[in-house]
Design a protein around this nucleic acid. Structure first.
Lengths: 113, 113
DNA sequence: GTAAAACCTAACATTGACGTCAAGGGCAAG
DNA sequence: CTTGCCCTTGACGTCAATGTTAGGTTTTAC
């Protein structure tokens, strides 16, 4: 898969995919001419990255948390701790968003004609 | 209440409060010397603004959606529609965040030592 | 009345995840 | 081989909420 295919398959722009690579979130092989090639599994990985970005994790946090290209950090207690911390953050955010949803729903009810 | 008090009461910076006013989200009376004064209800209003900002609504959207200082837009069908649209957005985001939470929880389980 | 603390406006700086543009190179089809 | 499309790197632009700084004014405390 070339970058345009991956972009089409994931909805991310080619610019974003290059950015993910630059941030160490996504690996690619290069053709002899220097063009990026991706395995089919990259689609799933990009989806994961997008999901975590949408959850408010920074690319640097994702880099820390995903045992990515370099598998160095796997199963260190530090990684487990970091994961738990981010999970906590997301759950807090989930609670807060839940309350906001209720507020908005209240407004909708109040202003529905 | 002056701006410092409101900042202390809400956790927002004075800069942010002025910005909210600039964006038409928050009203203030001025003293003879030009300093802002807020009613006690402003605390609640700022909390609402923060909540909506945290949910990813832009200040311009909040301005549209909150029947704010100028009460012009109240109860127009358009407002009701806009509110429903934003509620939909937030609910979508909530779903997505929920899934992301599960993914993260899975990772935690996987990498827990 | 005076000093300190809080406030004012105005403007520029920051951050992060991209968009966009320029100048060029790779690659399949005709 | 060339046409046309996709790709490359690099650099600069954007956007939104907020930080920061500067230079001056108002309010509060003594």
């Amino acid at each position: 898969m070339r970058i345009g295919d991956l972009a089409a398959a994931t909805g991310a722009s080619a610019r974003s995919l290059r950015y993910y690579e630059e941030q160490g979130l996504l690996a690619s092989e290069r053709s002899s001419g220097g063009q990026r090639h991706y395995p089919a599994t990259a689609v799933e990985r990009v989806a994961l990255i997008q999901s975590l970005l949408a959850a408010g994790l920074s690319s640097s946090t994702i880099h820390d948390v995903l045992p990515c290209i370099t598998e160095e950090a796997i199963r260190t207690p530090w990684l487990a701790e970091r994961l738990r911390a981010e999970l906590g953050r997301v759950e807090t955010q989930l609670d807060s968003l839940h309350r906001t949803r209720d507020i908005l729903a209240g407004l909708v009810e109040q202003y529905a004609v």
